[in-house]
Design a protein around this nucleic acid. Structure first.
Length: 396
DNA sequence: CCTCCACAGGAAGCGCAGGAGT
DNA sequence: ACTCCTGCGCTTCCTGTGGAGG
């Protein structure tokens, strides 16, 4: 175990890695004080035994929605310690139906609910019973757009307020999709949207301040050059404003500097961290891709390296492939992997999925091409994609 | 102008697994 | 524990469409 000793004795660039993790909740959240105040204002009635208005919070990933509400929840729980109010956090990605969400909330009150077998009406009665003791329940539904029967859930929860005399049930919904509002029916929309809040993405300057703070806590003193922080903030704000991405960049840059035995984290490290994070991301998405998607991607990568059958056509960017030829190659790839190819109709859906995941770019064929088809281009380099795919599909 | 090409993408329906309700 | 229902992944069938070609 001499090697561990060696690693342990090395001077570390990091002071506290957990500070760089996406789940870390800092002591104070910069640039979210205003939002915190607003949420507090909305929820204060609950502490006085009155029912607050429902609230919905929007914002892209990494804008601090979850972090902010978690901080509020800490404050709330502290303030409500003696009173009759409680806050319940539910991650709807995991608890994604009316039944599961109710079960999850009531588990805190009735341990026997651990095992299933209770009907929905029973759970509902229990909820009403608890609230009727005069308790104000505030339910935070994180990633609320993941709930399958959201209309029913909203109806059930708001409806319960009619039957409760003293207490109340309040919904705080968190979503990163603006569009999910449209998928609600009019009744649940109006009850859910009593109050609406939007978290804007962080600007470059804000990200810089946030990173500065984390660097101070997470890295050893003075190892991160200010140019590196600036670059990480600039790259991130240009791409998404996602604070988590910025943190990942810095984390990776630190690892790279440490691995090559340097004592400073420079902007060069951030630059190579970005490339590495990008590759990680494509490898990760490919690995989580279902087999058929991978086979389609394999076909695209194969043709990208060998050249399109139509590449000699005039006025066509040679980097693009025809939907039809890709389908034929896909059928061949399936044969190679001893799988039955799916119909071309479904293959088109695969293409859509791959595009939303950013693995390919497609354009409708315009002038210069007979018929109407889709032109396909691979996002990452074919080599980087091929390596993972070969291992996944034909390797073992 | 008509026809053909090379598809796009909606509608209906099918078998299955797993979850809800009893 | 059992049945019924729903959602998912998929196929089949079909109509629509923009430009090339004659």
């Amino acid at each position: 175990m001499a090697s561990f000793d060696k690693i342990l004795s090395e001077k570390s660039i990091f002071k506290d890695l957990s500070v760089l993790s996406p789940h870390y909740v800092p002591k104070d959240l910069p640039y979210r004080q205003h939002q915190m105040h607003e949420i507090r204002t909305v929820l204060t009635p609950a502490l006085k035994g009155q029912k607050p208005r429902n609230l919905i919070i929007y914002g892209k990933t990494g804008t601090g929605k979850t972090c902010t509400t978690k901080k509020i929840m800490d404050e709330f729980t502290l303030a409500a310690a003696s009173g009759k109010a409680s806050m319940h956090y539910v991650n709807c990605r995991i608890y994604n139906s009316r039944y599961r969400i109710l079960q999850r909330i009531l588990k805190g009150y009735l341990p026997e609910l651990e095992k299933a077998g209770f009907g929905l009406p029973f759970l509902y009665e229990k909820l009403v019973e608890i609230a009727s003791n005069g308790e104000q329940l505030v339910i935070i539904l994180d990633e609320i757009d993941m709930v399958k029967d959201l209309d029913e859930l909203v109806y059930t929860l708001t409806r319960s307020n009619d039957e409760i005399k003293k207490g109340g049930v309040t919904i705080v919904g968190i979503s990163n999709k603006l569009s999910f509002k449209d998928s609600l029916d009019a009744r649940s929309k109006s009850s859910l949207y009593e109050t609406e809040m939007i978290f804007q993405p962080y600007t470059a300057e804000q990200l810089q301040k946030i990173l500065d703070q984390r660097v101070k806590e997470g890295f050893a003193d003075g190892v991160v050059e200010s140019g590196a922080v600036n670059l990480a903030a600039a790259i991130t704000s240009q791409e998404s404003g996602d604070a988590r991405y910025a943190l990942k960049l810095l984390n990776k840059a630190g690892e790279m500097a440490q691995q090559s035995g340097r004592e400073k984290v420079t902007d060069d490290d951030v630059e190579s961290a970005r490339k590495s994070v990008e590759i990680d991301l494509t490898v990760e998405t490919i690995n989580t891709l279902p087999e058929m998607h991978q086979l389609v991607l394999h076909a695209i990568a194969t043709l990208t390296s060998s050249g399109s059958r139509y590449s000699r056509l005039e006025g066509v960017d040679s980097g693009f492939l025809f939907s039809g030829e890709v389908y034929e190659q896909y059928e061949r790839a399936c044969k190679g992997a001893k799988k039955r190819p799916r119909s071309s109709r479904w293959y088109k859906e695969y293409l859509n999925d791959l595009e939303t995941l950013g693995m390919i770019v497609t354009t409708p064929s315009g002038k210069g091409i007979r018929g109407q088809t889709t032109l396909i281009k691979l996002g990452p380099s074919p080599e980087s994609v091929m390596g993972v795919l070969k291992k996944n599909l034909f390797g073992g």
